[in-house]
């Protein structure tokens, strides 16, 4: 249990406190001017912090070698989602080895709590949470991320491939 330190007698005299505070400010200002590299703050938004690849930020739907979605529309992510922010519409795929795929996959990012349960529930590594975390938007619709945004947004450069290939898995009889 932590204890809140009681104010000392000295603090009843305000001036020493103000001076002490200004002292900190000035010391750090001088330090930062002399050595900006050691600065512990960022000039946001000009500078951005680079998060680790494992950071649970915005979702990414991975793709297969041919660029189509890996997602099989099993709905396990949607089932597992505590915020109930994922909605999927499944449909029949013409290739019988694929069989089922999502024609609509939407994440309401404002409802999302970034818990990562969807990632964990996914049996085919189709959804991942990436390092991006900014979710700006002007209208409500901007926060409903669809397949185009989740899988093919510009910075993903045509989609992220999973290391496991479905076709190989199928041929291996898994």
């Amino acid at each position: 249990m932590s204890k809140v330190p009681q104010p000392s007698e000295l603090s009843n005299w305000y001036l020493p406190g103000i001076l002490k505070g200004l002292g900190y400010t000035f010391t750090n200002m001088v330090k930062n001017i002399l050595n900006p590299k050691k600065m512990s703050t960022l000039n946001y938004p000009e500078e951005k912090y680079k998060y680790s690849a494992r950071f649970k930020g915005n979702h990414i739907l991975t793709v297969k070698k041919d660029g189509s979605l890996r997602c099989t529309a099993c709905m396990l992510c949607a089932t597992n989602c505590p915020a109930q922010c994922i909605s999927i519409t499944a449909s029949e795929h013409e290739d019988p080895t694929v069989e089922k795929y999502p024609i609509n996959y939407e994440i309401d990012i404002l409802r999302c709590v970034f818990c990562g349960f969807c990632e964990e529930a996914c049996p085919v590594d189709a959804i991942r949470m990436g390092p991006e975390w900014q979710t700006p938007g002007l209208a409500g619709a901007d926060f409903h991320y669809d397949i185009k945004k989740l899988a093919y947004r510009a910075n993903l450069k045509g989609g992220i491939q999973s290391s496991v290939d479905d076709k190989e898995r199928h041929e291996a009889g898994i």
Partner: peptide
């Protein structure tokens, strides 16, 4: 096959 994710019976 282990295709419960896409199997409607799951």
């Amino acid at each position: 096959p282990l295709d419960c994710p896409i199997c409607d019976q799951a």
